[in-house]
C-alpha cells in the first residue's frame, strides 16, 4: 500500500447546527438511549424502528442519541441505556463496543449476532486465512486485471480471528435473542427499564430465529 495516510477527522468534531437552549434542556432531562450495530445486518435496528407508535409514546421519556436513526456518530454524553446489535468481528467493533460500555449504564445485546455471534460466526469453524483466501483470492468475482490480493490498509478495520459475542468482550447486562427479535421484545425490555421495572422477557417473546 503506497497511499499516504490522511489525518483522520472524526465526524463528531465537524461543525454542527446548535440546538436552542430550551430544546437542549428538555432533551437532557430525558433518559438517554443509544443503539449501534457491530457485525450484523442492521435487521435488529429495523426491529427497533418497528416499535412504530410505541416508540413515539416512549419519546416523551427517552431521547435517542447515537444511533443509525439519528446519524449521531459518537455518544455525546452519558447514556442510561445502550443497545448493541451484531457481534465483534474486527478491531473497530471492539473500539465501538468499549466506547458504548464506557458511556452507557446498561448495555443490552440485541439479536443472535450480539448474543452468540450469529450468521457471521459461521466463519468460526474455518481458519481466518482460508476465509480471506476464499473471499478475495479464489472468489469467482475476484478482479481479473490485477493480481489477486487480500485488501490491507490502515483505514480498513483489522478482522479478528473469530467472531465473538459481545459479552465475551465487555460485560453485557441484558440479552434479547432473535434474528431479528420482534419489535415487541425490544419494546418490552425498554419499557421495563424506562419505568423502573425488573426486566422480564416472557416465554412468548423469546425466539432464536
Amino acid at each position: 500500500m503506497t497511499r499516504p495516510i490522511q489525518p483522520e477527522i472524526p465526524s463528531h468534531t465537524l461543525p454542527a447546527a446548535t440546538l436552542d437552549p430550551q430544546t437542549r434542556a428538555k432533551r437532557e432531562e430525558k433518559i438517554q438511549v443509544a443503539m449501534i450495530a457491530l457485525c450484523g445486518c442492521w435487521g435488529c435496528t429495523l426491529s427497533f424502528l418497528d416499535m412504530d407508535e410505541n416508540l413515539l409514546r416512549l419519546l416523551d421519556k427517552i431521547n435517542i442519541t447515537r444511533s443509525s436513526l439519528t446519524d449521531v456518530k459518537r455518544i455525546p454524553h452519558r447514556c442510561a441505556i445502550g443497545f448493541i446489535e451484531g457481534g465483534v468481528a474486527n478491531d473497530e467493533n471492539i473500539e465501538t463496543l468499549e466506547h458504548f460500555r464506557e458511556n452507557c449504564d446498561i448495555l443490552i445485546s440485541v439479536g443472535a449476532c450480539a448474543v452468540w455471534g450469529g450468521v457471521p460466526a459461521m466463519r468460526n469453524m474455518v481458519p481466518l486465512g482460508e476465509c480471506l483466501k476464499e473471499a478475495y483470492l479464489d472468489a469467482p468475482t475476484a478482479e481479473t486485471d490485477a493480481p489477486p490480493r487480500i485488501p490491507h490498509h490502515p483505514d480498513i478495520p483489522k478482522i479478528t480471528t473469530h467472531v465473538y459475542p459481545c459479552h465475551e468482550v465487555v460485560k453485557m447486562d441484558y440479552f434479547i435473542p432473535g434474528c431479528p427479535p420482534d419489535a415487541a421484545s425490544i419494546f418490552k425490555v425498554l419499557d421495563d427499564l424506562v419505568n423502573g421495572r425488573e426486566v422480564d422477557l416472557p416465554t412468548s417473546l423469546i425466539r432464536y430465529d
Binding site: A121, M122, F175, P177, C179, Y208
Partner: peptide
C-alpha cells in the same frame, strides 16, 4: 453449532422449544 436462523428445523425443533420454556436468552 445451533444457528436457528439458518436451520430448516427452526419452529419445530424441540431443543429450541425447550430453550424458550426454560427461559434461555444466552
Amino acid at each position: 453449532n445451533h444457528n436457528c436462523p439458518s436451520c430448516e428445523k427452526s419452529g419445530r425443533c424441540e431443543l429450541q422449544a425447550v430453550g424458550y420454556e426454560v427461559g434461555m436468552l444466552v
